[in-house]
Amino acid sequence: MKYLKKIIPFVVSIYFVILFCYAAISKILDFEKFQNQISASPLLNGFSQFLPYTIIIVESFIAGLLCYRKTRTIGLIGSFILMLIFTGYIALLIRTSKNLPCSCGRILEKMSWHQHLYFNIGCVILSLIALGLNLKYSRPAE
């Protein structure tokens, strides 16, 4: 059982590496569209000059942190915070706006806003579980 508790943070880290790399690459490949979608958001249009670059860099950086055991905890904290921010943004959009384009990446943009919210809530919970297990079981024995 203890082995499973150690492997879960690793598997979740791989999941987030794939998710963040996929999202970042999708945004880079169609950067102009991504930038336009952020500009179209009433909540983000004031930040459309630097936010697209920032999101891509942060997603890539967190993915890199998750690749190494020594930085995995920081990467899981970053994953939790980033997914919490994305989830809050989507929840706010659902409450305040209609018919906005999704700037998340090819597969994710096919989801409805409510599906996307549930997906993100699941990612927040997953990152929190992995972080808790990583903090508890991934420390070297003294």
Rank of each mutant, 00 (worst) to 15 (best):
L4M: 13
L128T: 02
E32I: 13
Y89R: 04
S103Y: 06
N99L: 15
I121Q: 00
C102Y: 03
I77S: 04
S39N: 09
T87M: 06
S127W: 01
R106D: 08
S60C: 04
I81C: 08
K136F: 08
P140G: 09
K5A: 13
R69P: 06
T96W: 05
I62W: 00
V12I: 14
A24D: 03
L4P: 07
H114F: 12
V11G: 04
F10Q: 14
K2T: 11
L108N: 01
T87P: 05
K136H: 09
Y22M: 14
G75A: 08
S97G: 08
I62M: 02
I129T: 10
I129H: 03
L92H: 08
F31H: 08
S60M: 05
I55C: 01
G75H: 04
V11Q: 06
F119A: 15
K33I: 15
Y89K: 04
G122I: 05
T73Y: 02
S103K: 07
L133D: 10
C21N: 08
S48E: 09
V11P: 03
I107V: 13
G75Q: 03
A91Y: 07
S97C: 12
P140R: 12
L100R: 06
I129F: 05
S26P: 04
L128I: 02
S41M: 10
T73S: 07
H114Q: 14
